[in-house]
């Protein structure tokens, strides 16, 4: 797989000694949506600023599209589109004026710039409001315009720093569709978010960053499996022969309620919660235990995340290297 973003041992210390990043390494494959998940102040925006050439790392190196973010910053800028946390728009311009202005600064010829602006306004559902001043836009519209701005010059790598923060659920879902469409058009997307649901929905792979270190990385499924636990609840018709349960359940912790409800906690065993539950079910049948009710609760990414960032770690724990799939 071609590598679109390659970050190696990036460190960033600000004046006054605040260390925002402590040796962050990861690779993002071309055409991937890479989720970068972390709570407030974990180092997400610092990472984006370094990868987009807005800030210099104190140590380490990074390339975007093969170009070094320090030595070849101009080349990096030509191939990326960026939206930062706050939509940077001039509220007094109309959306059309704004996009034409940005097209002009990209060096796009006037008529072509007008055409491209029209296309983008159409794509992002802003065409009816094209001639309204941006200050009259809702938060969702400003966000969409901000992303449209990042796409003016057909970037190959797109950085979205918390694009849906502050949006209502409807706008958030609409934006998810647009982010997926970016990948379908072949772009690589680096997406930071503090919403687990969002990372779960969109990201092909994700890294969890906590206090400037990557503490977990993998596909959303892998992360859930690695740190969450599946709970399977069985209801038995007859609760008298409970000893027959033990060999089936094996070493997994379980509890039996007075009402015959058996609650089994399954930790990562490489299979999904449902298939593990089916295995248990077959085992119970073999031993003549009649199951009359069954429910499976898979770990959510939220549980996985909270467990990951809540986990106490010695200060010298190194940052994980998040290689390509």
């Amino acid at each position: 797989m071609k590598i679109a973003i390659d970050a190696r041992e990036i460190e960033k210390a600000y004046r006054g000694g605040v260390r925002a990043l402590n040796g962050v390494s990861f690779q993002v494959g071309a055409g991937e949506i890479f989720g970068y998940l972390g709570s407030n102040g974990s180092g997400k925006t610092t990472t984006v600023r370094i990868l987009t050439t807005l800030s210099r790392p104190t140590a380490g190196r990074a390339t975007v599209g093969g170009y070094d973010v320090i030595q070849d910053a101009d080349s990096v800028r030509r191939m990326i589109g960026v939206t930062m946390q706050d939509a940077a728009l001039d509220g007094h311009m109309t959306a059309l004026q704004h996009l034409e202005f940005v097209s002009g600064l990209w060096g796009i010829e006037r008529n072509q710039g007008r055409r491209r602006s029209g296309e983008l306004l159409e794509t992002f559902g802003l065409a009816p409001a094209a001639r309204r001043v941006i200050s009259s836009y809702s938060g969702g519209m400003r966000r969409r315009l901000d992303i449209a701005t990042a796409l003016v010059a057909h970037p190959q790598v797109i950085f979205l720093d918390e694009p849906t923060t502050g949006l209502d659920p409807q706008n958030r879902r609409a934006l998810w569709g647009e982010i997926r469409a970016l990948r379908e058009n072949g772009a690589t997307v680096f997406l930071t978010t503090q919403y687990l649901e969002e990372a779960d929905e969109l990201a092909d792979r994700l890294a969890v960053i906590e206090r400037g270190k990557i503490v977990a990385c993998g596909t959303p499924h892998e992360l859930k499996a690695a740190s969450g636990r599946t709970v399977v609840n069985f209801r038995l018709a007859d609760t008298r022969n409970l000893n027959a349960l033990r060999p089936v359940i094996g070493g997994a912790p379980f509890e039996i309620g007075a009402d015959g409800l058996v609650r089994v906690e399954l930790h990562d065993n490489g299979v999904s919660g449902s298939s593990a539950a089916l295995g248990l079910l077959a085992g119970f049948r073999d031993r003549g235990l009649e199951v009359i009710g069954l429910s499976v609760s898979e770990p959510t990414l939220e549980e996985a995340f909270l467990q990951l960032i809540g986990r106490p770690r010695p200060a010298n724990t190194p940052s994980l290297v998040c290689g390509p799939r």
């Binding site: 987009t52 050439t53 807005l54 101009d74 800028r77 030509r78 990326i80 960026v82 930062m84 946390q85 706050d86 940077a88 728009l89 001039d90 940005v102 600064l105 990209w106 060096g107 701005t149």
Partner: peptide, 10 residues
């Protein structure tokens, strides 16, 4: 952040 946007343009 508008100045950052300018800085990202060629």
């Amino acid at each position: 952040g508008y100045l950052d946007r300018m800085r990202l343009l060629p």
